[in-house]
Amino acid sequence: MPPVYLSRRLFIIFIFYLMVFGMQYRLVLILVLLSFKLSAQQKQFSSDDNGKFIYYEVVEKAAGKDSLFLRANTFIDLYIKSLKKQSTTDTSIFAKGVMVIDKTILVASHPSGEVNYKFTFEAKDKKYRFWLTDFEYISYGRDRYSNYVPTTTVATPLEKTPGKLSAGEWKDIIEAAYSKTAKFADNFKKALATNQTEKQNKKKETISTKKW
């Protein structure tokens, strides 16, 4: 995601610049902005053999099998509140997770629901794969204390086609779920590419003001 993030930032600065200095280009820019938004929304889940949404990645040129397994375990332990381990073997981990979807209004937002998913990790020597599937959405509502809480225990599979009335909202939910999944995957890959022991042993760089 970093390139998208960066380009988006630059694009925003560019828009502001031209808003001030180039009035005649505004309409064109707005159109460009809209096309930019459309292109940013194109990424979406793939489907598995059963027609379910899946996020699947294979990573080659990785560390040894034992290291990968250890790093994956450490990562899941860090995410303990949103990712619960269900079972493990010598080379695989199966977990269930939840991600909260937010609805954004200008600069503020609030949770609009949660997406539950199943996470699987399998390691071999020098490579590993992981996938997230069985995405199910539970909508949130505001309770009497103005807190957002699940309004139902009935979860809806993300791949289900909603009726016309809910189509727009459902599309936003799928996009938000994909975005969060991709970010989760990035974090997971970073964690598995990092030697945790070395990271812990590495001395934190300090700055001394005593000598100069």
Binding site: Y5, R8, R9, F11, I12, K37, V100, D102, T104, I105, L106, V107, A108, S109, H110, P111, R142, S146, Y148, S179, K180, K183
Partner: peptide, 15 residues
């Protein structure tokens, strides 16, 4: 909107 999308969650909830 684009700025808000960069931040996964806002510390201030508005509804």
């Amino acid at each position: 909107c684009a700025l808000a999308q960069e931040t996964p969650t806002s510390p201030l909830e508005f509804s």
